[in-house]
Design a protein around this nucleic acid. Structure first.
Length: 511
RNA sequence: GGGCCGGUAGCUCAGUGGUAGAGCAUCUGACUUUUAAUCAGAGGGUCGUGGGUUCGAGACCCACCCGGCUCACCA
């Protein structure tokens, strides 16, 4: 038997010992007066004299993180809501069964304590425990206290253990909630209505990506997990819901990387009677307030850089290719408009695709500061309205920061016949083997035929925004359960089975 | 999918072809304001998996599994 399983069985046997002392090893309601963060917020700034004078009584619950036993006394750190509070146990202050319980405690057990606050000789705020209760048994070994849990595979697979061992991870996900809350609140304040549209779709669209396929048994049809909510949200705009947004998952059947998870959270919002210029203005307001709500400042530190979301730069794609050109042969503004020059620099099929190829190869990774890049070629923008002066371009922009694309917006194409032509040209690309080209969506065309108001629309990558706000290098660090290959046999059910059958090895200690 | 790196005790890691190690954790004992508590002792290994080379493999070779970084892919 492995050491780990022996420890499991030792701890399992303690369940009986805890019961023998008159405590319940699981499932007791605990009426607390403070959470750990509340105790710290209320008393961390107070002096020992102030605390002694007030003699505050608290009841707090938490997980035992450390134990320093010293004979008839001892100290423990309890972790609650991601923060730590020290408690002091003294034999004289407890009943005999409570002190026996204390001696049985394992790291990771969840307990409740009641007592008064004081400062120790070294000044640490602590609870002088007068009553000890048991709330839940930990049967597992915990990671080492100094280094914690660093193995990223275990951290992602067993996020519960990561959250116990690395409480700062909780702050990442608290910030994530602030990001989502900030976006939701800001849009609601501007009259946007939150909606939910199908994630299982019989036709997929709204982006260039390969989908996941699933199957409905009783309908006996294959369905696609959506790659974007766009086409459904625009149906709502056609129907007269003038400002709508959706924050939820989309799914793309692509490689995984530090910036891509197969399922990811996107915010899409659509506003009738505006255009991409209006969306630029709104984007700048949203991002600035988002940074303030998430981090307290419009200037955010990310991987050693200071990103200023209070001032977003703007360049056209062509300007960006010139401005951020990497390497020799920096082009002139005239050259990036010249089809022959573009064809000489890129192997792509059309001038528009060639321009985007150069932008992605040369300029994208240089866009560290938050930047809006506008005017995208029509070939790569099948759902965006053409520019009134230059029909090869669309009224579209993307937002970049830290070298990542974080948003994409445009004046929505609302001419059904032009949309029909774009779909047909996408079908032609599909015929040529592009399996990410759009499908024809006739119901969407029909919705446009009823007249969709001029509209500005945008999608923001929420996970990537959270990366920026939490200084996280990998998207997996801002997704609680990132996609991994399935784990092999775990075997914990067998451990529980064997531990159940085992007779109690050691009798409960005398109290 | 390609390239590179990694997988050794529960955790964090050493281990240069020759008896598998350390710290923490665990177990036993001491200790009534400690804090990476301390002190004394003990137990704990499918060296990712499977082949191969060798008198001898944790180490070298091959294949595979899992993960990371990176490139490709991803408007």
């Amino acid at each position: 038997m492995s050491l780990e399983q022996e420890q499991f069985e030792q701890r399992f046997a303690r369940i009986r010992e805890i019961e023998a002392l008159g405590f319940r090893p699981y499932g007791q309601r605990f009426e607390f007066t403070h959470t750990v963060p509340q105790v710290l917020a209320d008393y961390a700034a107070k002096t020992a004299e102030e605390i002694d004078a007030a003699h505050p009584e608290v009841r707090v619950a938490g997980r035992v993180l450390t134990i320093r036993r010293m004979g008839k006394a001892g100290f423990m750190h309890l972790q609650g809501a991601g923060e730590k509070l020290q408690v002091y146990i003294k034999k004289d202050a407890l009943t005999e069964s409570e002190f026996a319980l204390y001696k049985l405690l394992d790291l990771g057990d969840v307990i409740g304590v009641e007592g008064y606050l004081f400062r120790t000789r070294t000044g640490e705020l602590s609870v002088h425990v007068e009553k000890l209760t048991f709330l839940s048994k930990n049967l597992m070994g915990l990671p080492e206290k100094f280094h914690g849990l660093e193995d990223v595979e275990i951290r992602y697979r067993q996020r519960y253990l990561d959250l116990i061992a690395n409480p700062e991870v909780q702050t990442v996900f608290r910030t994530r909630a602030k990001v989502v809350g900030s976006l939701r609140r800001q849009l609601e304040e501007r009259g946007f209505i939150e909606v939910e549209t199908p994630m299982m779709q019989s036709l997929y669209g709204g982006a260039a990506a390969r989908p996941f396929v699933t199957h409905h048994n009783t309908l006996d049809i294959d369905l696609f997990l959506r790659i974007a909510p766009e086409l459904y949200l625009k149906r709502l705009i056609s129907g007269g819901m003038e400002r709508v947004f959706e924050i939820n998952r989309s799914f793309r059947n692509e490689g995984v990387s530090t910036r891509h998870n197969p399922e990811f959270t996107m915010l899409e919002f659509y506003q009738s009677y505006t255009d991409y210029r209006g969306m630029m203005h709104l984007t700048c307001e949203l991002l600035k307030q988002l940074a303030i709500d998430a981090t307290g400042s419009p200037v955010v530190e990310f991987q050693g850089q200071q990103l200023d979301f209070g001032s977003v730069r703007r360049y056209s794609v062509r300007e960006a290719v010139v401005e951020f050109w990497q390497g020799p042969d920096k082009p002139t503004p005239e050259q990036v408009r010249d089809a022959a020059w573009l064809a000489s620099k890129s192997g792509k099929a059309t001038p528009g695709e060639q321009l985007m190829d150069l932008f992605e190869r040369h300029s994208e990774q240089a866009l560290i500061q938050p930047t809006i890049i506008y005017e995208y070629p029509v070939e790569v923008s099948p759902l965006a309205k053409q520019n009134a002066d230059d029909p090869t371009m669309t009224d579209r922009f993307e937002v970049f920061a830290a070298g990542m694309e974080i948003g994409n917006a445009y004046t929505e194409l609302n001419d059904p016949n032009e949309q029909r032509r774009r779909f047909e040209s996408q079908l032609a690309m599909r015929e040529r083997g592009d399996d990410e080209a759009h499908q024809m969506d006739e119901d969407f065309l029909r919705a446009l035929c009823y007249g969709m108001p001029p509209t500005g629309g945008e999608g923001l990558g929420v996970d990537r925004l959270v990366m920026l706000m939490t200084n996280s290098k990998s998207i997996r660090d801002v997704i609680l359960f990132p996609q991994l290959r399935p784990e092999g046999e775990i075997g914990i059910a067998q451990w529980l089975r064997e531990a159940t059958d085992k007779p109690v090895a050691t009798p409960a200690p005398q109290v």
